[in-house]
């Protein structure tokens, strides 16, 4: 990975990385008004880390985003999602009934907005964590991806 002919690729990708992650967050939080949501944003964040792994090597990516962190992130995502359901139950509603989160009458949309935002965050964590775990499992199996393999 130290060969010089990748230098343009490395520099350009390094510039692209923050933009990719920012686009993922735009996708996440603009999902209420346009196309997008937790699934897409999770995949885009995972792809950003995968791009980093491709240009800097998998060990470097594993130091930046450790595998232990990604698999906990996947579990946390599912728990956040399920937790919203229990939050609604604690407030006296049914499981995942966002209207009950703040005990609102119909027509008030605060609970719906907050509820959907939190479960989309859960989906984001779950999907990005699971996808990165899958990528590390496959990429960690080969010692290093050599140039001739691409």
């Amino acid at each position: 990975m130290n060969s010089d002919h990748h230098v343009i690729l490395r520099v350009v990708s390094k510039m692209l990385l923050p933009i990719i992650v920012m686009f993922a967050f735009y996708t996440q939080f603009h999902g209420d008004f346009g196309p997008g949501g937790g699934f897409q944003a999770g995949i885009i964040i995972a792809v950003g880390v995968i791009l980093y792994a491709l240009i800097a090597g998998v060990p470097a990516a594993m130091r930046a985003v450790p595998p232990a962190f990604t698999r906990s992130l996947a579990a946390i995502g599912v728990m956040v999602y399920a937790g919203v359901g229990y939050w609604a139950m604690l407030k006296g509603g049914n499981y995942l009934e966002y209207q009950a989160l703040f005990n609102e009458p119909p027509g008030e949309h605060h609970g719906q907005h907050i509820g959907i935002m939190v479960i989309e965050l859960g989906v984001l964590f779950g999907v990005s964590g699971a996808m990165l775990t899958i990528f590390y499992a496959f990429a960690g199996r080969v010692a290093e991806i050599r140039d001739k393999d691409w």
Partner: peptide, 26 residues
């Protein structure tokens, strides 16, 4: 969607159990 998220999580877990968490590369 809760079910789908759980399925994705379980798939990640299954792949990690089959192939390891990437220790060889480490």
């Amino acid at each position: 969607t809760l079910g789908e998220t759980t399925v994705v999580f379980l798939a990640g877990l299954a792949v990690a159990l089959l192939l390891g968490f990437g220790e060889r590369s480490l």
